[in-house]
Amino acid sequence: MSTETVDHTTEAGHAEHDEHADHGWSDGKYIQLAVILAVITGLEVYASYADWLGPAFIPSLIIMMVVKFVAVVMFFMHLKFDNKIFSWLFYAGLFLAVGVYVALLVTFQFFNR
């Protein structure tokens, strides 16, 4: 389970130091990230019109989607700076969802065997 990572030795340390100090980035960096995300979105839209990508089309879209997803979760939602336990809780749900639903869609493909 995700919970084994709880580190009790840090308990006292956490209580004392200001929680707000580790809240990641300056505003400027957030704006930079937002610009990058906007560019990726532009690339996504471009890719959906670009014929030359061929078979790489869907993989490239998926990769860009994942990059955007991870960027928002990691930085805007501070998951990268925060305690690991938050990551565990969220990723438990996320990976369970991906695993279960991909398996579901796959079983529909196997049906005609």
Binding site: V6, L89, L96
Partner: peptide, 27 residues
């Protein structure tokens, strides 16, 4: 016990469960 905020733990759990909600709808 963890030095973390209850609210934030609950919120992340909620978001984790929302993954399965939207996952179902997307599927």
């Amino acid at each position: 016990s963890t030095g973390l905020s209850n609210n934030k733990l609950a919120m992340w759990l909620f978001l984790g469960s929302e993954c399965l909600l939207f996952g179902g709808l997307i599927s």
